[in-house]
Simulated scan of single mutants.
Amino acid sequence: MSIPKYDELRMSALKLLADGRTMKLKDFLDPLAQEFKLTDEEVNEMYPSGNGHIFYDRISWALSYLNMASLLDKPGRGLYTINSKGLEMLKNKTPEYINQFVDHEVAKRDKIKKVNKNPEIKILDINERSTPQEKLYTSFNNIRSSIYDEILSTILGKTPAAFEKLVVLLLQKMGYGGEVKNSGLVTKQSNDGGIDGIIKEDILGFGRINIQAKRYRLDIAVSREEIQRFVGALAVAQSNKGVFITTSYFSKGALEYVENLYGNTTVVLIDGKELAAYIYDYGLGMQVEQTIEIKKMDTDFWDSMADQ
């Protein structure tokens, strides 16, 4: 039997969690391999690049889609458990209905609201009419988006203090603070005055970037009032530079308020999707899993050769 596609694995993976247990990704390997009667060679088959097992990767995508459809929860990194919605689906709905539901829910995540920049993850569709290059780029973007989702889920499982430390490290990673020793500071929670972190831009500390970090659920917007309080905190700190970072998104009122700020005060807003992208792009807590090199013909080289 050939290795099942990720969408063929979804129902079986969901049923394995029906007893309420919490499983790691690797725990799905043996029971699913037995169910689909896979040989050891098929279970251990790797991608042509030699980097990654096909079956393991497809299980991972199946679980990701179930999680995006809110049928599974991730209580910790690499852990999966079924929730009440998933149990209800298994009890009352057919496999065909559940698969259609998952596809529908994932497709909905394509429609990211432009107004509030809600950091939902965009999964792009690959169709048979796509060129090989288009399929490659689409697959890359889907993998990247899946990692964004994992980054935000992981952050939400950490403490607010850990998040404050993370955003200070991120701004340093992005080059703010330069060569200044100990340029990043997380303020004491008991007396932070509305400032969660500070980046010193020069050795004497004349230039400072003040940070506020809000570790909110993805569906909770940061309001205009919260931005106003942050601007007030900047005034008390005699600072004209601020960065407000959240795991969620900013309300329309918050965005409009920042756009209409007058004077010398500059506030930069970073929502959850942008935060995940910066963490990914600057490699904070990330590892390079695989590098693919694609080459094209050098037309100048070949054109310089005599034609027959």
Rank of each mutant, 00 (worst) to 15 (best):
K200F: 10
V167H: 11
E164A: 01
G86L: 07
T131W: 04
L124K: 07
K114F: 14
S145T: 01
N191R: 13
I198T: 07
A161I: 03
P119D: 03
P160C: 05
K188M: 06
D192E: 03
K93A: 14
G175W: 00
V167A: 07
L152A: 02
E150N: 05
L166T: 15
K158A: 10
G157M: 09
Q172D: 05
Y148P: 03
K165M: 08
D192G: 06
G157K: 12
D125V: 07
K200T: 04
E105D: 02
P132Q: 08
F140Y: 14
D202I: 09
T159A: 00
Y97Q: 04
I151G: 10
N92H: 12
A161N: 07
G157I: 04
N182V: 04
L185A: 04
E134A: 15
N92S: 15
Y176T: 05
D110W: 08
T131P: 04
S145A: 06
M89K: 11
S153E: 12
T187P: 02
K91W: 06
I195F: 00
N92I: 12
K173F: 13
K85L: 00
R109L: 15
G157H: 12
S130G: 06
D149W: 11
E134R: 14
F163W: 07
E96N: 04
L169K: 14
N182Y: 05
R109W: 04
V102C: 13
Y137D: 15
E201P: 00
R109T: 07
Q172W: 00
L136S: 08
K113V: 07
D202V: 09
E164R: 01
K188S: 11
